[in-house]
Amino acid sequence: MNEILAVTDKLALFTFIVFTMLGAGLGLTIQQIWEPLRNPRLVILSLLTNFVLVPLFVYLLLQVVHLSEPLRDGLLIMAVASGPPALPKLAHIVKGNIAFSVGLMMLLMLGTIFYMPIVLPLVVQGVQINSWEIAEPLLLMMVSPLLIGLFIKAKFAAIAPTLQPILFKISNAGLLLGLVIRLVIHTNDIIGLLKTGTIFVCAVFILFSFSIGYLLGGPGIDTQRVLGVGTAQRNFAAALLVGTSNFDDPSVVSIIMVTSILMMVIVLTAGPKFTVIEEGKVLEVEQTQLS
């Protein structure tokens, strides 16, 4: 039964990522993706947030909160893995800048390919990482469908609006199916981490990541939302690859999976509510100014 669930989970993940990227490509142009990245300040702050501030915070947090070595290693792996495959979907959910989400995802993903092999061995003992092993699945599942979508949009623009809603429905189905299956598979892990209090450390990790990303994600609210969720949701695909290939202790993979589930649940549940509250505050300010 567990084997069937594991295979279904992989298929759901593949469906979610591929159809999300394909649908994103159908709705954008290369110019639209590139335009937000022409802001040097935004690019520098995005890199600083994901590759310096979040890993440093998690490292310092784990010096204060003492966890077992496998749990500590798993959280550090998640901290240095950036560029979440789900970012365009999350940006859509929180009404963020979709073009910036795609550009940011590509920027962080490429950065992770070079960053992880250098930094992770400095904080986690016994890790050996091959950059190409991380890059290959990410390029196959994320970059390739994005390029196909961009090509269809450029050459067959008339069919793009018809295809895009269908692809996003398939993507949503993959996301929900994968989330449900992971909750089923890792229920015992979640209960165990609740008993030890580790899951609260994960929550602090996520809340800090979102907050620092949101605060540094200007110039607009739409880019703040994207950097917020893009920093809170780490690249679990890269983290899982490193965890499964370098560690025999199942606790390492468990903490990676549970943290990724918690990240997704928090963004899916709190993200839309936060957006509504935020828009309400903006409306109040505008009405005050007008009066």
Rank of each mutant, 00 (worst) to 15 (best):
L167Q: 06
P219Q: 09
I118T: 15
G178L: 02
L163R: 15
A160I: 00
V7M: 11
V252K: 05
Y214V: 03
P88C: 07
V265M: 02
L268Y: 09
L163V: 09
G192A: 03
V65M: 05
K281R: 10
A24S: 12
T198G: 10
L122T: 14
L194M: 14
P272N: 02
A154M: 08
I159W: 12
T269Q: 09
T20E: 03
E133H: 15
A203P: 12
S209N: 07
Q31P: 09
A238H: 03
V94H: 01
L62R: 13
I44R: 14
K10L: 11
A12K: 03
M78D: 01
Q128P: 12
L22E: 03
V123T: 10
G197S: 06
L11S: 07
V65W: 03
V242E: 00
L139S: 14
H92D: 08
T20M: 13
A270S: 11
G280R: 10
I113S: 11
S101V: 02
N39G: 10
A270C: 11
I93L: 05
L67G: 06
G230C: 02
M78C: 08
L56M: 14
P70H: 04
S251H: 10
K95W: 00
I206G: 02
F274A: 07
T269E: 04
L110W: 08
I129W: 09
A173T: 05
F205L: 00
T20W: 05
G96N: 06
I166V: 14
L175A: 09
K155M: 03
A157T: 12
G103I: 02
L122I: 06
S245G: 11
A237Q: 07
R182M: 05
F205P: 00
S82N: 12
L107E: 04
S291K: 14
A203F: 08
S245T: 15
G174A: 08
L167A: 09
L90S: 10
E35L: 14
P70D: 00
I191S: 07
D248L: 15
S209I: 00
L163P: 14
A79N: 06
F19M: 10
R38N: 11
L140T: 15
T288Y: 07
G271N: 03
T162C: 10
V102E: 06
K153F: 00
V252R: 04
K153Q: 11
V65A: 06
S68F: 04
A135K: 12
S209F: 00
G111F: 02
L76M: 08
I30D: 04
Q63A: 05
H186P: 01
L104G: 12
G25M: 05
H186W: 04
D9I: 08
N2E: 07
F247N: 02
L177V: 02
L62G: 09
M109R: 10
I33M: 09
G149V: 05
K89E: 03
V124M: 04
A232I: 01
V58R: 02
L146E: 01
A6P: 06
L5R: 13
